[in-house]
Amino acid sequence: MLKLNKNIAISDTGYVFDPSIGESYTLNPIGLEIVELLKANKTDNEIKSIILERYDVDDATFERYYIDFTGMLKNYQLAKDE
């Protein structure tokens, strides 16, 4: 399960600040929505169900973008698998 690092600050506007290194990032609205779900301790499958229900997107397309996005979160050390 992917876990966001505890000290990461995320604003309502999608501005992300990693205080351990002073780096900041911006999320688009869907990115912010996914990060909020990760923050609420939702699993990958739960997040998938929620997004598929809310948006007009097929399973394969979602997974492709989700893997890419979560890979980026891990790469920037904002989240890690637990």
């Binding site: 000290n7 205080p19 351990s20 290194i21 002073g22 780096e23």
Partner: peptide
């Protein structure tokens, strides 16, 4: 952390961090 570094390697911008 230096956020902007000059060609002399000096900080021209920086941010306080929690590490």
């Amino acid at each position: 952390r230096k956020t902007y570094i000059t060609d002399k390697g000096k900080a021209w911008g920086g941010i306080t961090i929690d590490e």
